[in-house]
Design a protein around this nucleic acid. Sequence first.
RNA 1: GGUCCCAUCGUCUAGUGGUAAGGACAUUGGCCUCUCACGUCAAAAACACGGGUUCGAAUCCCGUUGGGAUCACCA
Length: 464
Amino acid sequence: MEVRTRFAPSPTGHLHLGGARTALFNWLYSRHNDGKFVLRIEDTDSERSTQESLKTILESLKWLGLSWDEGPFFQSQRSAVYKAHLEKLINERKAYFCYCSHEIIEKKRKKALTEGKTPKYDGHCRDLDVFHPDKPAVVRFRTPREGFTRVDDLIKGEVIFNNSELDDMILRRSNGTFTYNFVAVVDDVDMRITHVIRGDDHLNNTPRQVLLYNAFGYTTPAFCHVPLILGQDKNRLSKRHGAVSISNYKEMGYLPQALVNYLVRLAWSYGDQEIFTLSELIEKFDLSHIGKSAGVFNPEKLLWLNSYYIENSSGSYLVEQIFPILKNKYPGPFQKEYIEKIINIFRQRCKTLVEICEKADFFFTTPSSYDIKAVEKFLTPGMEKILNNLIIKLSHWDGKDSSMLENIFKVIVENENIKLLKLAQAVRLALTGRTVSPGIYETIEVLGKEKVIERIKRIIEYIN
RNA sequence: GGUCCCAUCGUCUAGUGGUAAGGACAUUGGCCUCUCACGUCAAAAACACGGGUUCGAAUCCCGUUGGGAUCACCA
């Protein structure tokens, strides 16, 4: 049978790390099995669903490279399907109308919670067996009062729930819209989903859903509840732990492959391997190597992975990725070739694209100030003469031959009997305004002879 | 609080009855060096606890403790 998985976000916010990972697992599993990956938008809550959220979720999925084969399907547009299913349940007396007011139930619920009891609908309307077309009503599922419901989970194993723990859940709200547990089941059946891979937090919902499958006479899909991602304080990951949405990471200069690689390794493993290409993941991914316990999000490891991919991605790819960030920060125009050279001298020193943009500022603007302490330390009285000498020598340089460039420095250092450190730092200050930068020779080469000479002249004027 | 899930270095994890408990991130130190990085070498660092089962348990069972999830006319 064809493997069909789905990702079913509700458009009530950004795509966050946890959601991205379940999307990724679903996507990988379908790809691994030559199956289909379905995208479904769970927007039955019209109040909280927004177009804005939908847009960023779709963008994030695309950015991560998680393409879907079918959909997006919108639950808000599928009420006919739900209605038909609901009628079936009502006709078979498996669901009933409930006229209890929201306020009273809410009151009872809060009371139970404060008393430390499990709040449950008391079943007031369960056996009333009346129908008031004019009164507002919800439709509830007639949950079996006795017996057990078993959930066979691919990760957690067999989990048994006592039906007496479950109450009569609402299938349709009084405003006519349908609720999650109901539509999720109908849709998963209708879309022929074979594997439901989702967050751990849904495990407690699963027996209710299984009961619905049974009520309809449908067979259940395979369930696979993936452990959650926790923040450093071991609480469920949320905004207060800092950046949690995929779009945040894009803005901060992370590469999609780094996110994918990080996310997949949180909970899943393949022996000692840490780095995976996408095709490797598709080939190797399986459900049986997903761990059972929740994992703490480790931003440092993500950063490391990002620096790995920055170091190992092609220059042209990185140019493409960094372009929007660059445009945002410096006035153009930008030449591809120039950008690529800059990336190549920063790729081993930066962990994000944004960091490259920041550290490479002197390639786009002339330094407006100099590190005062460093000026005192390296631009000592004798240096002016030496720098002028360097300017003369540089003017005879062809601008390309790096060994010749190194030789220019070497000769000066020998003749003047100074340390290379001192010369290099003085020049670095002139070119960048700082004492930290990529290697001085490569910096000179990329910046270009004219600008280098100009900036050295500038700093000579500055010290005078 | 009820129910459910979980438990190997600080963190992510390998491990499926017999290992010197392995790798990675982070940390610390050395080397490399024009600064910063990269790289490289090394170090420190874990089986939550208590009972069983077994010739033998990180691995199996039970309990304790700890952590998490969930208990909506949200999904």
